[in-house]
Design a protein around this nucleic acid. Structure first.
Length: 407
DNA sequence: CGAGATTCATGTGAAGTATACCTTTAGGCTTAA
DNA sequence: AAGCCTAAAGGTATACTTCACATGAATCTCGTA
């Protein structure tokens, strides 16, 4: 009986599918034609062109919010370069792309280098080696044969915020330690003010060239969406105004094209699940919520246990405070609650110092909002507010509870 | 009454500790000549 | 004797703790009007 139900689900999935080719809407899809980014692509190409003659190029820096086509454009140029380089392969060309924001990687200089080495075919242990050794190993691998290397470091602003800019300084200086090879760095940053915080020495050598990617406006987003939707969905399946709404939503989010495509794809998936024949406007709203929720929940669920405990304390306390109409939450309240909670769970209790840092990290993640205030003689503390909506909070609680034996 | 000192409760930086893991090295054992 | 394995020694990164000092405005204190 269960089987027949499952069959039914599969059947309706089979019949009713509204996608022609869903992969076109997935965020890792590379379209053949990149709309509204011709200018930037041309610039990148002209800056990187000397590579084809085996010359070192200027370091390059790309600015622009998420989903403004930076990564796509670079990768496009990268492919073209490879194509050309194959034809006249006088020099070996390697282009490595690394997204520094990925979890596990972004935390430390060590991990980034380790990841780079792994990409270059080397191998380093997760821990135990001196950073300097890892660094030399990296140089060794690069310098093992005559080659040109382009390192594309996506979202390095995240990294530099966590580590110091020494890391970048080392990278920019690397050329002087290489004898056979040459290296060229393409940095990508979401934060326009990023370079202002960086050491001037690094700044001058890293951003020899800069290209700004302005956000897409609603019209451009519409273009892009239309272009992909044509191929991704079956015909006549999209209701009037759906594309426009997607574009509008994404335009509000600083013109994030990736977001726009995600919206459309998830709206499609929701439609499919609903056995509906057309993608209606309401699905976009739902998709929007779902994206937001999934993003946050994903972050929360991958957070270490102690972080989850702290977050759980914050959630519970702020619910309690809301009910009792007490004012905002402060560090002390959270810590006390957390302490009790840990004791009940027979978990180790971290010091206030550490919890203070954890709270700060949650602020960085955007899960809570934090403000340091001084209450005069009442002391100085952080005022803590949850920055996520109620439905997400409920889910988050479930996730955290799931990972605990005792609540 | 008002300027400066005090005070509170925590922020924050620096240094130290525990743990997990890595490489190197030396000693012991096995193996092949 | 050469080769291999193992365990100890010596080293690092990371997450956390400990210690100590920094903050910043409400409140207190005390000299002055």
């Amino acid at each position: 009986m269960i089987n027949s139900e499952i069959d039914q689900i599969f059947d309706s999935f089979d019949k009713n599918t509204i996608f022609k080719d869903k992969s076109l809407l997935q965020s890792n899809h590379k379209p053949e034609e990149i709309l509204h980014r011709k200018e930037q692509i041309k610039q990148i190409a002209s800056i990187l062109a000397p590579i084809l003659r085996g010359e070192k190029t200027s370091n390059l820096f790309l600015y622009g919010k998420t989903g403004s086509g930076k990564t796509l454009s670079v990768q496009y140029v990268q492919e073209q370069l490879f194509k050309r380089a194959k034809e006249n392969n006088k020099y070996k060309l390697r282009i490595e792309y690394l997204n520094c924001k990925l979890k596990k990687i972004s935390d430390t200089e060590y991990r980034i280098l380790a990841e780079l080495i792994k990409k270059m075919g080397g191998n380093v242990p997760d821990t135990g080696l001196p950073t300097q050794t890892v660094y030399s190993k990296f140089i060794e691998i690069i310098d093992s044969e005559r080659q040109l290397i382009v390192l594309i470091l996506d979202e390095i602003d995240q990294t530099v915020k966590k580590i110091s800019s020494d890391f970048l300084y080392n990278l920019t200086r690397m050329n002087s330690e290489l004898s056979k090879s040459q290296i060229c760095i393409v940095g990508i940053s979401n934060d326009l003010t990023f370079l202002d915080q960086v050491d001037p020495r690094v700044k001058s050598s890293l951003s020899e060239e800069e290209i700004v990617f302005p956000p897409y406006n609603a019209l451009q987003l519409k273009d892009i969406l239309n272009n992909r939707a044509k191929l991704a969905f079956k015909e006549g399946i999209i209701e009037e105004g759906v594309i426009e709404k997607c574009a509008a939503f994404a335009a509000r989010e600083h013109g994030d094209a990736r977001r726009a495509l995600d919206l459309l794809r998830i709206a499609g998936e929701l439609t499919e699940r609903d056995n509906s024949k057309k993608i209606k406007l309401k699905y976009i709203d739902e998709a929007n919520k779902k994206i937001e929720r999934d993003k946050i929940l994903d972050v929360i669920s991958t957070e270490p246990k102690q972080f989850q405990l702290v977050l759980y304390s914050i959630i519970n306390l702020s619910e309690q405070f809301n009910k009792e109409k007490k004012g905002p939450l402060f560090t002390g309240d959270v810590y006390n609650y957390y302490q009790d909670f840990c004791l009940k769970n027979k978990t180790d209790v971290l010091t206030q110092r550490r919890v203070s840092d954890i709270i700060q990290e949650f602020d960085m993640l955007g899960i809570i909002n934090v403000r340091v205030i001084s209450k005069g003689r009442g002391g100085r503390m952080r005022e803590i507010k949850l920055a996520i909506s109620k439905s997400i909070i409920e889910k988050a609680k479930e996730i955290i509870q799931g990972g605990l034996e005792y609540i």
